[in-house]
């Protein structure tokens, strides 16, 4: 009963928000710019039945995850190396601190210059933006590893490979997941941004194209779709985190 109550509580504010939107939109003088939610939801449902919209969604998800996946593949091992070796970390420190705060959107013109406007460029921008949170969190994880874990392994003469696989990696997984959760959100934001700027396809392009052709309900439906996608990705990662870091 308590669980049901708790689940219900989560939806109180969104339901109130939707109701308020619906009432204001229906009583407003400009329903074209500010359509009722019922109309937007209806539109989204009908769009989800079209192959065009599904392709736009799939392309955005594909870019988002490929960029994010490559960033993870680079950032986790690099973070472990940098976190475990102070000298190498000092060598790379300036480069990391220079690129990390750089707004990823600012590299889009440079990326277009060198990579053109196709998927490689879009994935590169997503990769660039989502790399840093994973890298920084992995480095922090390694630096902050419980010294007793390493001491125990050393006293029991466990070799470096097994220490890395069975001690260091599981110990830094919570930190890696913190980085992954931040990065996956950044990946989605950048996928949409780059699609809006460069065009071609994807939900970002669909939203901007709908706005430019005065199909505002479609535009809102696209935004709603991004919100739903973001929420689902977050839920997926929370579940994944709970499953992977089962000892927490």
């Amino acid at each position: 009963m308590n669980k049901i109550k708790h689940k219900f509580k989560i939806f109180i504010i969104p339901i109130l928000f939707i109701l308020l939107w619906e009432i204001i939109a229906r009583s407003s003088n400009s329903p074209v710019y500010f359509p009722p939610v019922s109309l937007i939801i209806g539109k989204l449902i009908s769009l989800l039945g079209t192959s065009d919209f599904i392709i736009h969604c799939s392309i955005t998800i594909y870019r988002c995850f490929i960029g994010f996946f490559i960033a993870t593949l680079i950032a986790v091992p690099l973070g472990i190396i940098l976190g475990a070796n102070k000298k190498i970390y000092q060598f790379f420190h300036f480069i990391i601190e220079f690129f990390r705060p750089l707004p990823s959107a600012s590299v889009i013109p440079i990326a277009i210059l060198f990579l053109g406007i196709d998927d490689t460029m879009k994935i590169f921008v997503i990769l660039f933006g989502s790399l840093w949170p994973i890298l920084i969190n992995t480095i922090d994880g390694v630096i902050g590893i419980e010294p007793q874990f390493l001491k125990t392994a050393k006293v029991f003469n466990i070799n470096q490979g097994r220490i890395l696989k069975n001690v260091i990696f599981p110990s830094i997984l919570p930190q890696i997941f913190t980085g992954l959760k931040i990065s996956v959100a950044i990946s989605l934001i950048l996928a949409i941004t780059v699609e809006m700027i460069v065009g071609g396809n994807g939900i970002g392009f669909f939203i901007l194209d709908s706005e430019r052709s005065f199909q505002f309900v479609d535009m809102y439906a696209g935004v709603l779709m991004i919100g739903i996608l973001g929420y689902l990705i977050n839920v997926l990662f929370l579940k994944l985190e709970k499953w992977v870091i089962f000892w927490r």
């Binding site: 007793q148 874990f149 125990t152 006293v155 029991f156 003469n157 069975n166 599981p170």
Partner: peptide, 25 residues
């Protein structure tokens, strides 16, 4: 030689069960 450390909460690996902690070395 073998050792038992002061702080039990950090001397065991939290992601390994009892059996895995003992067999790990």
């Amino acid at each position: 030689c073998s050792s038992v450390f002061q702080n039990y909460s950090t001397s065991l690996y939290p992601h390994m069960n009892v059996q895995q902690n003992i067999i790990f070395p």
